[in-house]
Design a protein around this nucleic acid. Structure first.
Length: 270
DNA sequence: CCCATGTCCTGGTCGC
DNA sequence: TGCGACCAGGACATGG
């Protein structure tokens, strides 16, 4: 569920409740996430949240003496709740705040992460090799073209590589390539600068549109099954293999690339 | 049994 | 041959 738009929506949603609050308690119910939750998360107690930022799909809560890094993995969700809300299955971590609310992480598959870094988080290896934010000015015309020179990896795999650009997951990679009329299997190094620049615009548009609708996801989030469907209606190719292309009625095809499914229109994406 | 929105790590390949 | 960049696939855990 968490692609970049949802993480950004999550950030915007939790920020007003968390900003400037002091941590009163840190509860670790299950430390076994992607990496063990370190004991040092207790260092947050009695310190104030100074900012709520995002880099790639990482949420960053900054304190005067360090940074809490949160990643939702494949199945994580974060909610701001009353601190006394009964614990549910897979509620692994709470950050209890002085306003009697808590930031609660639920993550069935436990691919997420909760990490504490004293001082400068940006120097850590996790963030140091990441490509530009797709919605920033650093992701500009010419960037993808230069980065793709001499690369033989298929464009779909290229776009999903965090060292190239962050936040483009499987769903949005499929969608952006359809909108750009580029077949996912096309070798990156063979794509023209013009087409790459067009793709740059489309990636920004698709992600921005998804963030805009993300509010709905957050609002519906407390519902029983919590499964967001907000983007499902918007998807043009993802999950639609075997169905008709909305543009030309051809039957959409599916291939597997790097162990992930790619869906494309054989007519519109030559 | 199949599949699944992420991403780190390993080991192999390629090209200079 | 060496080295570094690049790349495919495995691994993680749970649920539908």
């Amino acid at each position: 569920m968490p692609e970049l738009p949802e993480v950004e929506v999550c950030r915007q949603g939790i920020k007003p409740h968390v900003m400037d609050q002091t941590v009163s308690k840190v509860i670790v119910r299950n430390a076994k996430l992607r990496w063990p939750i370190p004991e040092t998360v207790q260092h947050m107690v009695d310190h104030r949240v100074e900012s709520v930022d995002r880099r790639s799909k990482y949420l960053m809560l900054k304190f005067d003496h360090g940074t809490l890094l949160l990643h939702l993995g494949m199945s994580g969700t974060i909610r701001v709740i009353d601190a006394k809300t009964p614990v549910a299955k897979h509620d692994h971590f709470d950050l209890v705040l002085s306003n009697n609310k808590a930031l609660r992480l639920n993550d069935p598959r436990r691919f997420g992460a909760v990490l504490w870094f004293a001082n400068h988080v940006d120097e850590q290896g996790l963030l140091s090799k990441l490509g530009p934010e797709p919605l920033s000015e650093n992701f500009s015309y010419g960037y993808l073209y230069e980065k793709a020179k001499n690369r033989k990896v298929p464009i779909k795999t290229f776009l999903m590589n965090n060292h190239v650009v962050v936040g483009v997951g499987n769903i949005y990679a499929n969608e952006a390539l359809f909108k750009a009329g580029v077949r996912p299997t096309t070798l990156s190094g063979k794509i023209s600068k013009k087409k790459f620049d067009q793709l740059t615009d489309i990636i920004k548009e698709v992600l921005a549109a998804a963030i805009k609708q993300g509010g709905t996801t957050l609002k519906d989030f407390t519902q029983a099954d919590g499964r967001p469907g907000y983007f499902a209606q918007q998807l043009l190719v993802y999950g639609r293999a075997g169905e008709e292309c909305f543009n030309c009625k051809s039957i959409l095809e599916e291939v597997r690339q790097s162990n992930r499914s790619s869906v494309f229109c054989p007519t519109c994406q030559q």
